[in-house]
Design a protein around this nucleic acid. Structure first.
Length: 215
DNA sequence: AACGCGTTCAACCGCAGGAGA
DNA sequence: TTCTCCTGCGGTTGAACGCGT
């Protein structure tokens, strides 16, 4: 059906927009496959639905995102992850596609998030649960060695916490060194959410002393 | 002016789940 | 219960655009 080449693809023309608008104005939305057939458009139902929801609907807000909208999206994304429709549902006038695109092209860069990973910088190599000031990192291959260095891309394997420390155990393709005290590590957001949610969603009482580095 | 390259975002794709026959 | 149709979702693609050389 839609998989075959009987439907037009690509950008919509003004004429197609007008036809779809006129049809919906008279008959209402829904039953998109029927609309596609009855309106005379050579478009699939899915394409018609998407065009209406993301562009033609009067409830869609055009133009750039405000700071308030961005802030809301960031907070909702921390809470919900990539559940764009849920996020969009709480940002008036914005569609899931708009929110998703804006996140991928602007906000992920702004926050230093790439490929689902977040860069966490710590000022020293010890990590106190009370002050949450520092971070102890042990290498998987050599548990005795404190890891340091910049931009190490890592996968958290385990994290052990007691009252005063959190110990990340991770794999890394890079050699672990013991040099500088100014370290940055890349951890997947999933790992952080699971093992150290207070890093992903800062909580005031922990008085986090870390920086979300921008790229 | 022409070209190459990176960025943006509209649109597509595959899949899952719900509704109803 | 099973099947078909419809809708909605998240990831991906590619055309259009802007900018630097």
């Amino acid at each position: 059906m839609e998989g075959r080449n009987e439907y037009k693809k690509g950008l919509w023309t003004e004429e197609e927009d007008r036809i779809l608008m006129d049809y919906i104005r008279v008959h209402g939305k829904g039953k998109w496959n029927r609309i596609a057939k009855m309106s005379g458009l050579k478009r699939g139902g899915k394409s018609c639905r998407l065009r209406w929801i993301n562009y033609l609907s009067p409830s869609v807000k055009r133009g750039g995102f405000s700071e308030e909208e961005e802030d809301l999206i960031i907070r909702l994304h921390n809470l919900l992850g990539n559940r764009w429709s849920l996020i969009a549902g709480r940002v008036p006038g914005r569609t899931d596609n708009q929110v998703k695109n804006h996140w991928n092209t602007h906000l992920s860069k702004k926050l230093g998030i790439k490929n689902g990973k977040t860069k966490v910088s710590v000022s020293t190599q010890s990590f106190s649960r009370e002050s949450v000031a520092n971070c102890i990192v042990h290498s998987e291959s050599n548990p005795e060695v404190l890891a340091s260095g910049c931009n190490r891309e890592s996968t958290v394997e385990t994290i052990i916490e007691d009252k005063s420390h959190a110990v990340f155990s991770f794999t890394s393709t890079q050699e672990v060194t013991m040099d500088d005290n100014n370290s940055s590590y890349w951890f997947s957001n999933d790992d952080l959410s699971l093992y150290a949610p207070y890093l992903v969603e800062p909580v005031d009482e922990f008085a986090l002393d870390f920086v979300w580095d921008s790229l």
